[in-house]
Write a protein that binds this DNA or RNA. Structure first.
Lengths: 168, 168
DNA sequence: AGCGGTTTTGTAATATTATATCAATATTGG
DNA sequence: CCAATATTGATATAATATTACAAAACCGCT
């Protein structure tokens, strides 16, 4: 019983030695369920791009994904990647980090949400929060001004706990 | 006594008929004071780009600024604009809206801050908040996870009060 | 299996956003 | 005025993203 419901971590900063294969396989299985449920086609390209996004917990740029995909699919072009990214975004399987023009796997694709992201400027790793207190503060203040919230982008730059402990 | 200190609006949604010349002249005067205080040079190009950013309350893209600047300075090139934007950002005179790759004037340049932005997806206008409750929620949650906040990007998409009242 | 409509992918071209580099000019402090 | 520094000019190129149209794959139906 570690987390209060209203401040749950969707995808925490991973330990150096976590079983990352498990992150990937969980993400793929989730994606299969989400696609199935929506009648969306989780094609080979889309699956592979999702795996590439999940290669780490650091956001990946579109052209990095393209370079990697080209290694195994030499006819891949920018639209190949951008179409796959569009599909993955639409289905909530990845998030775009606006301040980095880069993409990161979503840790909880089975629930629709706008995440909040903690971005470590030292190691590049991103953690995702599904934090109702931040979301609430946003909606409350917006509401006071007569503004109806549709979505939000919350990206927090700083130093993660693990990097904070090491010498600069 | 309308605003509580911790939720002040730095730059509200403007009325259609506000005196916009006043927004611009205030911004320029502020910029002069800020530059003076910092020993920074508020050159003609920088001043003009700031005026162009302040042409409206909608974020402006870099190449739009370039096109406008070229009308009066035909040798302007991308670096002309990007250098001016860099100066204005460094000195807190404008903000970059990450989700739009665009720039908007800062309503309170004399106090250093990370703003929060309400972006109307109907009319394109942006309001800036300096909202301690959002900032506090962010810092609190980050702190619980051992994350040290350096800066944040908070961009809220939705419909402003005035657009919400008109027929879709 | 065959057909027709729809979605996905292939391919080429281009648009948009941003930076690197180095030379020339302007400004500042001494 | 000189020398150091900051700013601007000019060219090239990098990085990110989209448009357009044709070909192929897939799906539901018979």
């Amino acid at each position: 019983m570690a987390q209060a419901r209203n401040t749950n971590v969707i995808s925490a900063f991973p330990t150096r030695r976590h079983n990352h294969g498990r992150c990937v396989s969980t993400a793929i299985e989730s994606a299969e369920r989400v696609s199935e449920a929506r009648g969306a086609r989780f094609t080979a390209i889309r699956r592979r791009v999702l795996e590439l996004v999940w290669a780490s917990h650091e956001p990946v740029a579109a052209y990095e994904l393209l370079d990697r995909l080209k290694l195994e699919k030499s006819n891949a072009t920018p639209p190949t990647i951008y179409r796959a990214l569009e599909f993955l975004l639409e289905n909530g399987l990845i998030h775009r980090i606006e301040s980095l023009n880069a993409y990161v796997g979503c840790g909880n694709p089975e629930n629709e949400h706008n995440g909040q992201f903690l971005i470590c400027t030292r190691c590049g790793v991103v953690a995702e929060l599904g934090c109702d207190s931040i979301d609430g503060a946003v909606r409350e203040r917006a509401g006071e001004l007569g503004f109806t919230v549709e979505s939000h982008t919350v990206e927090i730059q700083g130093i993660c706990e693990s990097c904070g402990k090491t010498t600069r």
